[in-house]
Design a protein around this nucleic acid. Structure first.
Lengths: 344, 344
DNA sequence: TTGTAGGCGTTATCAG
DNA sequence: CTGATAACGCCTACAA
């Protein structure tokens, strides 16, 4: 294309110095209305667009935020990104705020901890968002970073050092289980990824599960805890089989992700079981397809788009030093009753 | 953090000039093995990571690729991005190649055509991918751009000027309809976004639909063409109602997106109709949930991840001038028979 | 109120 | 083979 239009061109066109142009662009308030006008006009006429790369170099801030995902063995972003609309909805919210604040979002899968440190430094990212699961050492490595970091759905010791956006997981677990209990269920499965110390989210939900049971003088039956490896349709399907194989009584299932519920229901159906006739099932997240399934899924709803917005805003605030200390936001959840649960 | 480590530090540490360091980094083959070694060592010791921002400025290439999405009225990326896993899967494939080639991906929604031109210039994007629907004028505007552009699923006059990644839409339409015809269906609905001249993808699919019918001496019945506004669950649901209201006979439905099929099935179910007992239905895309629905969805499958990979590779090739003329890749589709269709 | 000039980290053009 | 040094486009003291 034709020569790139630089600040110099604008300056020449307006008959002022580059500094002056820079001043009006950056709103430095020491240029007369008169020249300001001239400069603005020149900018418009030449269709001048400031070069962010140059600005980055000069100001040492890129106006770029990074979102990192876990990589799976194949080297591509975990397919959970794809299967679970949760992630894209989050990104959508994030993109919304960032764009409106002049930031751009970079998305990258990361393997070794060194990968993303490299990524951050080489791209001069202003801030980072960690979405999805990560091995512990990633967080340890993070401490050596000097940019603001927002963690999504993380608890753990390390989380204290960063900004956190989460939902009220325990309450979610409680609401779900309570709903089932209120419908008369007593044999309620809890399905989630393994409840290790590294999985606080599901531990919280489990706590809610337990609390609801206890309130009704029930206790947790270890046999009813089923664990999946990953939050995927396939894993839901597989755990569904396991549930079918269980010899004891089960009348309801609380599962910590809607897409898992989908897989489970598939399994049940294949075994000739119907939801909610034979099993009541409640999910978590309220992704959009949940209301379009048959039966429509009862679930714990969280506003994922908004979560992305809040995460983005928090990160931007941190980058621009509006906030200094680690900030934690707990977003609400609510019960959405649809067709997959019924009175026993 | 501590001072950023620059090429100068490396030079000093290795006892050479910055130029020399730059040479070894860029593989300019005119530096002795000896000094090369020293430089490499210094780089490792100091954990030096070249600054892409500076490189961008100097080399005039950012190693960043942009993916643009249509914005909806609310100002956020069309929720179709969220609802349809198609998009995230594409992104996943794209991210995979780009990352392995040292590129990063920027994602942005664009409103006015000027928005994305601005975006491209200010970020010095090396290449652009247009995903999803866009108004015509966007493509006209594109002509003034000087970076390679890859269009996804576009035909139209304008498409000739850019690189194109598509699938064999006509064959997809044909395969789907043929499958239905083979099962004895004669009253087959065609559900898609409006078949205007600006919607070549669905026109192609419609062509395939028509061809399959014609082959069996049937002709298109205009009454069986249903059009939706957007490819969303909600629109599928709504069109399902319309189909229910139709007074004539319908035994099968071919719909141009799996998520639409989901919505339609929901509608049918609410009207007491069963799939495939009362209606056979076939979708398009083969997103992951399709095989986990009940009934599992028969559909036309395309390898979306691979589509992202091919798109990314094509764009990178174009950026690096491996290809000069507009290149078009047509990816294959295939029929995946599951449970949502049956012999009449 | 405006302009000059040095610097941001890198590459690239010349000399040596 | 190696090293100064001027770009790249912008910002920002410091001067004027």
């Amino acid at each position: 294309m034709n020569q790139k239009i630089t600040i110099r061109d604008v300056a020449r066109h307006a008959g002022v110095s580059v500094a002056t142009v820079s001043y009006v662009i950056n709103g430095v308030n020491r240029v007369s209305e008169d020249t300001k006008e001239r400069v603005l006009e020149a900018i418009k006429e030449l269709e001048y667009r400031p070069d962010f790369t140059a600005i980055s170099l000069s100001k040492k801030q890129s106006k770029m935020l990074g979102v990192m995902f876990e990589l799976e063995e194949s080297g591509s972003i975990s397919s959970i990104f794809y299967e679970n609309p949760y992630n894209s909805e989050f990104i959508r919210g994030l993109e919304f705020v960032t764009r409106n604040n002049g930031y751009d979002v970079l998305i990258s899968g990361v393997g070794k901890p060194d990968d993303y440190k490299n990524w951050i430094t080489k791209r001069n990212l202003d801030g980072l968002i960690a979405l999805g699961p990560f091995p512990q050492n990633v967080f340890k490595e993070m401490e050596t970073l000097s940019i603001p970091i927002v963690l999504i759905d993380k608890y753990g010791e390390y989380a204290k050092k960063y900004h956190n956006i989460r939902i009220d997981d325990e309450r979610g677990g409680y609401l779900a289980t309570k709903h089932l209990v209120d419908q008369g269920h007593t044999r309620i499965c809890f399905v989630s990824p393994k409840l290790t110390i590294h999985n606080p989210v599901d531990n919280k939900r489990f706590l809610g599960y337990k609390k609801a049971l206890n309130e009704s003088n029930m206790s947790v039956d270890e046999n009813l805890i089923f664990e999946i490896k990953a939050t995927s349709l396939e894993d839901g399907y597989e755990i569904g089989k396991k549930i079918m194989e269980y010899s004891g009584e089960i009348t309801a299932i609380f599962v910590t992700a809607d897409i898992l519920a989908l897989g489970i229901i598939k399994s049940l159906n294949e075994h000739g079981k119907k939801v909610p006739k034979d099993y009541s099932i409640i999910g978590f997240d309220n992704i959009s397809i949940s209301s379009y399934m048959t039966p429509a899924l009862t679930t714990i709803s969280q506003d994922i788009f908004n979560k992305g917005v809040v995460a983005g805003q928090t990160l931007i605030d941190a980058v621009e030093e509006q906030i200094s200390h680690p900030k934690t936001v707990n977003l609400p959840v609510k019960l959405v009753v649809r067709e997959s649960t019924k009175k026993i």
